[in-house]
């Protein structure tokens, strides 16, 4: 597996994990664990495990679809929040920031990307790379 694709694939795995997707089979989870262990020791072994993961075509495609649906739902919720903040409170809000409940410091934020690419567009770009690789493999 070439390095550029391997970076994309790791990014892909990171996103689906952080989006709360845990529906991979036990076998795939074991391979992910093995990939983590190989990453400690040997780059070759790590790449090999990632190659193996690509054989799980169906599961990966399902994850791609799941994330897209989640991103659409989040976008719609965010749009409704903006609309209510404007209509009900007269506020034109561009950032809803989530703060640490104790310290009040920002921990995450969801920005409206009016000029830049949306999360969905960026996900489509990334997942297209993965899907192309699946077709080739």
């Amino acid at each position: 597996m070439e390095r550029a694709f391997s970076e994309s694939f790791i990014k892909f795995l990171d996103i689906i994990n952080r989006a709360g997707y845990h529906d991979f089979s036990d076998e795939i989870k074991e391979q992910l664990l093995a990939a983590q262990q190989y990453a400690d020791m040997s780059n070759d072994g790590f790449e090999y495990k990632l190659d193996f993961l690509l054989s799980a075509h169906g599961q990966i495609k399902f994850a791609i679809r799941y994330i897209r649906e989640r991103l659409i739902a989040i976008k719609k919720m965010r749009e409704e929040c903006d609309e209510i903040l404007k209509k009900t409170f007269g506020l034109n809000v561009n950032v809803i920031e989530f703060t640490d409940p104790i310290l009040g410091e920002p921990v995450t934020e969801i920005k409206l990307r009016r000029k830049n690419k949306t999360d969905i567009e960026r996900w489509d770009e990334l997942s297209k790379k993965i899907e192309n690789k699946l077709i080739m493999s």
Binding site: I96, F98, P101
Partner: peptide
Amino acid sequence: ANPNRRVQTIKFKSGPGKIGSGNG
């Protein structure tokens, strides 16, 4: 609404907390 700013940022708690603490 802040008349000097076209858009604003608002904050909400990211996790469980107290009344009067943080700035959500």
